[in-house]
Every structure is written in C-alpha cells, then in structure tokens.
Amino acid sequence: MYAFGYHRPTTIDEAVTLLGQSEDASAIAGGQTLLQSLKQRLAQPGELVDLGAIKELSGIAVDGRTVVIGALTKHNEVALSSEVRKAVPALADLAGAIGDHQVRNVGTIGGSVANSDPAADYPAAVLGLGATVETNQRRIAADDFFIDLFETALEPGELIKAIHFPVPKRAAYVKFAQPASRYALAGVMVAETGDGVRLAVTGAGACAFRVPAMEQALAGDFSADAIKGVQVDADELNDDIHGTPAYRAHLVNVLARRAVEAAR
C-alpha cells in the first residue's frame, strides 16, 4: 500500500473534523474492503480515519419493536447476539453467513452498509426489513439510502451512527453464495411487517433493490406459490463469470420462494 496518515479519533465530532480537513481522507471501519484496495494500491487516501475507537458507535440495543445496532458492531456480535436472534432471527442468520469467522470478527455493519457493495448481505437486511439509517446528521429511510453501485445517500462528512431495524412479524434471508468469494450471487430478504410485505434483493443488481411485484403478491398470500410466476427483469442485472443476468433473475425467484418458506 501507499503511505498514508493514520488517525484514531474517539468521538464522532473528532472523526468528522479529521475527515473534513483533507480532500482525500477516508474513513475506515472494519476495513474488509478498503484494506484489500489499499494493499493492491487501488486506493490512495492521504489520511485514514479509523473509527474503531469511537465507543458510542458500537453495541446492540433491543426493545420490543426495534433492534438498534451501532455502526461499528461486528458481524459476529450480531450473529451471536441472543437478543438479536430472538427478535429478528433472520438478521442474526444473515450476519452469521457473511464471509468467514475472520471477516465476521472484524467487519462491521456500518462499513458494509456505507460501502454498499452490490453483493454484500447487509443491504438486503436494511432494505428488506425497512430499517432506518441514523447518521451524525439525520435519519435516512432504507428506501432512500441505496442509490447505485457503491453509492448511497450519505453525504461527505456524514457517518452512520446506527441502524434501526423494526422487528418484523416474520422474516428470512436466503442467499446463494458465489462459489469463489462467497459473496451473494443473489440474496433475498423477505419480511412481513406491520406495514405489509417487503422483499429486497442483493447480489443481483447494482445495489440492493426491492421487488414490488413480489411484495404485492405476498401481501395477499404469504406463500411461495404466490410468487412462483413473478420474475424480475434480467436486463439490468449483474453479469460475470459466475452468473448471467438470466441466471441471477432465476435465482431471485428461487431464493424469494425459499425465503418465504423459511420466514419465522
């Protein structure tokens, strides 16, 4: 990697100030994507602002209606939290299937959501469960958060503080892992909530997206059969050596049905 300045602030304000002081400063949370880019010399931030020492960014709080997860909470902390498992088992399952143990012990929910990798798992949870992203400036509804490939509604200097997940009636996340990377070739989070059914897809498009046609079909009849004939349009889906757009579109339907069957 190229040389860079390293900072380890202990408060959000300090972090924001540091990030604002340099044009090419970059925040680092768990670093599971950024470190690889640095090692390959494909990213060259002048300053690296490590958020790891900001205590208020970590932790899990569950009340009857909401699970609040601090941005710096690690995947394994979510996966192994008995409170999360009790309130939203689908979320604990999802976190427990990210990468491997090394990744889960370092990678963070805030880092994953802010990065918005097209194949990351967490965006499906944020969007599928209808979560709210709390930043140092505002609250952003999931539907407004994911914009495009690696692009979110976050503005420069805006940091995720926590993600608020409303507890669904039932939900499930089913992913089909890309064989090499084990990222989601496609992944589907389905949730029956107080406000209806939400169904979000990751891995298949530029960023996580909802499938309204499936949601509508499931609102009337929450069963796998209800969406058997509902296909997503392959045109805009990702294409690589592991999956053609047509295959991904097919997988979305298969996984959506499996998720509906698994929802609890």
């Binding site: 064989p179 090499a180 990377s181 690589d240 050596i241 592991h242």
Partner: peptide
Amino acid sequence: LITGTYMDYTM
C-alpha cells in the same frame, strides 16, 4: 486473467 484473485478463482 479474469480469475486473478480468490474473488473469482474458486478454491
């Protein structure tokens, strides 16, 4: 080489 890392070469 498209399969130049473990992201794409499946061990």
